[in-house]
Amino acid sequence: VAEYRVGYQAYYDRCKHVDSPPVRDPNAVVYLMPGVGMFTFAGDKATARISGEFYVNAINVMRGASTVSTYVGLPEQEAFDIEYWLLEEAKLQRLPKPKALAGQIALVTGGAGGIGRATANRLLREGACVVLADIDETALASANDELAKAYGKDFVRPLVINVTSEDQVISGFAETAVEFGGIDILVSNAGLATSAPIEETTLALWNKNMDILSTGYFLVSREAFRLFRAQKIGGNVVFVASKNGLAASPYAAAYCTAKAAEIHLARCLALEGAEAQIRVNVVNPDAVLRGSKIWTGEWKEQRAAAYKMSADDLEEHYRSRSMLKRSVFPEDIAEAIYFFASDMSAKSTGNIVNVDAGNAQSFTR
């Protein structure tokens, strides 16, 4: 690769004219690895794919030429004059500037749910490639189709994964590396919620919360760290925890304890990752009813019972108890996740942002 860069610069110096545009990226786009295959690299997935398609056609031209004679490429100067044609340069200069997350690869667990889908949408809107990871195959297919239609099939991939399975997590990160080349952002969001008085909290229920909300976050974070360290270009982890990780709630001991474990795990990872420029931060939602898969199950009925009210009154209850008297939506959580995933927070790690419309109990200080 280093030799190629030197050779490309020499080619530019030999062929340039007085009015030639400045030298462009000296890295190769197409790499051929004998016995393995072809790799193409570009600023985004679509360009990398198209480059590969062009080169396959070039191979076919070479093969066809070789059946009747010997393939010969363009003379070097002619090739340069095409590559650095002034009208081509003018077209390139008119291209829009890259979006904030162009070239970034994100893996979002719980990607088919309300917060996960809103987060994927926000990251895709800024130019990222996104892997949607979820255990719900039907919801995952729906989310993938929706986002692929909006942003293009090149930029989003579905991944069926159970975050409590070590083997599935390991293979999921391997698949992500194959599809997009690596990972830059992990949004750990897979979750569930349960409610029961402590006397009625079974060991199975306790373990289920710990498996998904604590062990699951550990497993995906560990694999992300391994890949970040191998890449040696830093990384970004955002945990979606909960207000309940800071403020206790009645009849939800298993859920609150597991969420508290998430937050402390994030603190530990922020300490370990800092020297490698791996940032780890937390977003704490509260009462995100609309669009959330968690709130379409028993949790809504259970929380209504805990507060001795109708399930239909729960959203108004949460809005009224907040300091700002406002409802919280998946898009609000996605905005905070984007802040931590982007360079806007480049100097932040080990931090918590509460997106709960204001709750004094969950103030971090």
Rank of each mutant, 00 (worst) to 15 (best):
Q168V: 07
V169C: 04
S171T: 15
F173A: 08
V178D: 08
I185F: 10
A190Q: 04
T194Q: 11
A196S: 15
A196K: 13
I198N: 12
I198S: 14
T202D: 13
L203G: 15
W206G: 07
N207R: 10
K208D: 08
M210V: 13
I212T: 05
Y217L: 06
F218S: 00
V220K: 00
R222L: 08
R222W: 00
A224L: 00
R226N: 13
F228R: 02
A230G: 11
K232C: 08
N236H: 08
V238N: 05
F239T: 03
F239M: 10
A241N: 09
S242Y: 11
K243I: 10
N244F: 09
S249T: 12
A252C: 14
A253W: 04
Y255S: 00
T257Y: 10
T257D: 11
K259S: 14
A261E: 05
E262Q: 15
E262Y: 08
I263K: 09
H264P: 09
A266H: 00
A270K: 06
L271H: 14
G273D: 01
E275D: 12
Q277I: 01
Q277R: 13
R279Q: 05
V280D: 08
V280A: 03
V283I: 15
A287L: 03
L289R: 04
R290H: 11
K293F: 04
T296E: 15
E298M: 10
W299Q: 14
K300A: 15
E301W: 04
E301S: 13
Q302H: 05
Q302F: 08
A304L: 03
A305K: 15
K308D: 14
M309T: 04
